[in-house]
Design a binder for these strands. Structure first.
Length: 324
DNA sequence: CGAATTTGACCCGCGC
DNA sequence: GCGCGGGTCAAATTCG
């Protein structure tokens, strides 16, 4: 299959954009090259042109294979994930002493009184109490979700638009991450016990990592509004293979956020089990993700420029080596 | 002026 | 027992 006379288009980029090119119709790709400023028309050597076409076909094939491999990987991951969930169901962790990590100890009723003494905090209904006490027991039951949001680089805030209203009740700089972590309660508290923590990713400051604890017992305002306005916006968080990402569809077009900074997690990760909101990992969905990534990349001028530079560099190299 | 946010103090579990 | 660190509280401040 390899033909040494063909232009080697493997690019020295961190990603493999050829993969995405294969997803673009050939003509479109060619016109994109024109857009890129590559003077294709000036390449009069027909042989070179046909070689390019051949190479394009070859790369398309290669990318097909890569896509299949990716799908297989995703399926394997899903299978493993399923097994892990089943294993956890069958072998619930000893909820008492050993696995209790660090949180406030489960308090007996007498201790509750002590607790209320301190802050004399709001007439603490039962819900509020349940929020601040046996967190580890709650934690075993409470749904924990981890969602990554990509933000503008210039955006230094810790606000995440997820459709719910939140009241910030604390902020803290943690040891493992120089960025402050913000603590939010659902503004419907105490009737809604959901909390979330938001912190910037230690590796990529443009990524906000939100950790949700618990489930809302009321509807999502944003979704309600969108449903009523017929926008049909959906937000799903999933993992593409081991790469967490969130996707959203809106009137301004689909966007995909890939959390490429999160390392693969072969080991059981407590966040993992709740990492999936949308859980739709059907091949169609994956294809959709790939398509969207491809179109996003082809629309990205900086990506195009890098691609053009890499390809033109290779072409020049190839031409020179042919002359030799 | 009420609601939301900020921020220093405090609580508590854990490791040494 | 003590110190560390994450989580929470609540007074002060800011905002609409």
């Amino acid at each position: 299959m390899e033909n040494t006379s063909l232009v080697n288009t493997s690019l020295d980029l961190n990603t493999n954009p050829a993969h995405f090119l294969s997803l673009v119709p050939k003509q479109e790709a060619q016109s994109n090259f024109i857009e890129l400023g590559l003077k294709v028309s000036s390449v009069k050597d027909e042989q070179t042109a046909s070689a390019l076409v051949e190479e394009l076909n070859r790369v398309s094939e290669e990318n097909k294979k890569l896509t299949e491999m990716l799908t297989v990987m995703c399926e394997n991951y899903n299978a493993l994930h399923k097994h892990l969930a089943e294993y956890k169901n069958n072998n619930p962790a000893p909820s008492d002493s050993t696995n209790n990590s660090k949180k406030r100890k489960p308090e007996n009723p007498s201790n509750q009184i002590n607790h209320n003494e301190r802050g004399a905090s709001e007439s603490s209904s039962s819900d509020e109490d349940s929020c601040k006490k046996p967190r580890q027991e709650q934690g075993m039951k409470a749904k924990i979700e981890r969602v990554c949001y990509r933000t503008e680089a210039s955006d230094t805030g810790l606000l995440v638009k997820d459709g719910y209203q939140w009241r910030k009740y604390g902020q803290k700089v943690t040891r493992d991450n120089p960025s402050p972590r913000a603590y939010f309660k659902c503004s419907h508290a105490p009737s809604c016990p959901v909390k979330k923590k938001v912190q910037r990713d230690v590796a990529d400051q443009s990524i906000l990592v939100a950790t949700y604890e618990g489930e809302h017992n009321h509807p999502n305002q944003l979704k309600q509004e969108q449903a009523s306005s017929g926008l049909n916006r959906t937000v799903a968080t999933t993992t593409l293979g081991s790469v967490p990402c969130s996707t959203s569809l809106g009137s301004s077009g689909p966007t995909i956020t890939l959390d490429l900074t999160t390392p693969p997690k072969p080991q059981p990760n407590p966040c993992d089990e709740a990492n999936v909101v949308g859980g739709d990992r059907s091949p169609e969905f994956q294809q959709f993700l790939v398509d969207q990534m491809a179109s996003s990349l082809t629309k990205d001028p900086s990506f195009k420029a890098a691609l053009a530079a890499a390809i033109s560099g290779r072409m020049i190299q190839q031409n020179q080596s042919q002359k030799w």
